[in-house]
């Protein structure tokens, strides 16, 4: 776990400084290495966009759940055993024929961790943060998404304390699919709003 032999990036210096910081914190009794392992394991192996996909599939399949999700997302996702850090104040935004929602954090990287995990590099990058708010349709086109001209694109700059997840529209022709098959259709980008599903 604590072995950096595959770190042959030009950031060896950074890796050494992080190692030194960890050693100092362990020596001071402020950090337990096994706790670091546990946090990493959670976000590397358990908390990611498949969680959000389960939420979306449930909302598509169960109108009662969809209603609860849109009214009080933290309580609704708790029904699926989800919640916590960086999702304490979660709001779910529903796409429909009139509105396409898309989420950004222009100031840094706010993101709904319990449902989507850690944000991808592009979400935290200058090109996305700078243009998502001023040219959302141009950004969407870069992602291969063309939103009809008569449909409102609604950007959410989530730079305060609410974390936002998009509930994409259920794809046409998916009526016969069960919840697990529906979840397999849902992408991370669909829940950020940079993809349709």
């Amino acid at each position: 776990m604590h072995d950096s032999h595959h770190d042959d990036h030009p950031d060896d210096d950074v890796a050494m400084r992080v190692r030194a910081l960890e050693d100092l914190l362990v020596a001071r009794g402020l950090v337990d290495r096994a706790a670091i392992d546990a946090f990493v394991d959670a976000y590397e192996n358990r908390i990611g966009p498949r969680n959000g996909a389960r939420v979306v599939a449930r909302a598509w399949s169960d109108p009662g759940f969809r209603k609860r999700l849109l009214a009080d997302a933290p309580r609704a996702i708790a029904e699926l055993g989800l919640g916590g850090l960086q999702g304490e104040q979660l709001v779910v935004l529903e796409n429909n024929d009139a509105v396409h929602n898309m989420v950004v954090c222009t100031l840094c990287s706010c993101y709904p961790w319990p449902v989507l995990g850690l944000p991808p590099v592009w979400y935290k990058s200058a090109p996305y943060r700078s243009r998502a708010v001023s040219d959302p349709r141009g950004v969407l086109r870069e992602f291969g998404v063309e939103v009809p001209v008569d449909r409102e694109v609604r950007i959410w700059d989530s730079s305060a304390e609410i974390r936002y997840m998009v509930l994409p529209q259920r794809p046409r022709g998916s009526d016969s699919l069960d919840e697990a098959a529906l979840a397999a259709l849902v992408t991370r980008d669909g829940m950020i709003g940079t993809a349709l599903v």
Binding site: V18, R19, L30, V31, D32, A35, F39, E44
Partner: peptide, 16 residues
């Protein structure tokens, strides 16, 4: 989720 092991450690440190 991570591109180097030091990123893992940095995330864990920042959360702990």
């Amino acid at each position: 989720p991570f591109h180097a092991d030091w990123e893992r450690r940095m995330l864990g440190i920042s959360l702990a």
